[in-house]
């Protein structure tokens, strides 16, 4: 497997690939959002329409899964930014993969389980917060023993499985996409000279297109499941 550049700072390990990718994509998301919302008018222009469509889309995800109106209001922005950010991070590795020697410098940050686990953890912490705000700490813990008390351990385990499935699903999809793209480009293309080189180009193109689709679907799924988990925490079953 490829190596990445890891450095230590304040006793914590930092992986440069993830930091470069995520920061780059955050900048892109910010730039795109600001570019789309330069002129905000009552009669929307084209760019504003795009942004409004996106907001409507993520708002729809929130509305479908969270019934509590107060939480819904707070989650709207979170869902919007999360969706766009993850979408851009998913696509990054498809067109930009920078390797210096044997060390990976730029690839999709979401093809790294630490990234996806970070975001999954963020979502779960958010869901705990919303649950505790809604029911109080005691009420929140009592909800784990609903509908019957012996389900408490199972409900606790469910939190861990939620965390794992949410993060590893995204990681697996994007990572597999990149692995296959790397295989086509690095192993298949030069394997039999010109013949495979010519064959590899459309194959890589098809797989890239499919990966864009997968990346969009996974961003959507990630946001939807995040909202489902938060929604479950703020509704009494």
């Amino acid at each position: 497997m490829e190596r990445s550049f890891v450095f230590k700072f304040l006793g914590l390990k930092f992986d440069l690939t993830g930091i470069i990718g995520s920061t780059l994509m955050a900048a892109v998301v910010l730039f795109v959002c600001i570019w789309l919302s330069r002129k905000v008018e009552m009669k929307p222009n084209k760019k504003q329409n795009v942004l409004e469509y996106l907001i409507d889309f993520t708002d729809g995800i929130v509305k479908d899964n969270v019934s509590d109106p107060d939480a819904r209001r707070h989650l709207s922005l979170y869902a919007f930014v999360l969706f766009i950010y993850i979408w851009f991070m998913n696509q990054l590795g498809l067109f930009l993969e920078v390797k210096v020697g044997d060390t990976m410098i730029v690839k999709s940050p979401t093809a790294d389980p630490v990234t996806t686990m970070s975001f999954a953890m963020m979502t779960l912490l958010l869901s705990f917060t919303f649950g505790m705000q809604k029911f109080g700490t005691g009420g929140y813990w009592r909800n784990y023993a609903e509908p019957v008390s012996f389900l408490f351990p199972i409900n606790m385990i469910e939190e861990i499985t939620n965390f794992l499935t949410l993060s590893l699903r995204l990681y697996g999809n994007i990572y597999a996409g990149e692995v296959l793209l790397t295989l086509i480009g690095n192993s298949f293309a030069p394997s039999f000279g010109v013949t495979t080189l010519v064959l590899a180009a459309p194959l890589a193109m098809i797989w890239q297109g499919f990966s864009v689709f997968i990346g969009s679907i996974q961003a959507y799924v990630f946001v939807t499941l995040s909202m489902v988990y938060v929604g479950k925490k703020v509704t009494k079953e």
Binding site: M1, R3, S4, V6, F9, L10, L12, K13, F14, D15, G18, I19, S22, T23, A26, V29, L30, L77, Y78, V81, L82, Y85, P109, D112, P113, V114, T115, M117, S118, F119, M121, M122
Partner: peptide, 21 residues
Amino acid sequence: SAGHIYLGNTIWYLIVFAILL
């Protein structure tokens, strides 16, 4: 991925995401 658990990235992601938000 890399043979390391790099918690630093998690903090970095959270900060970047918060600023982005």
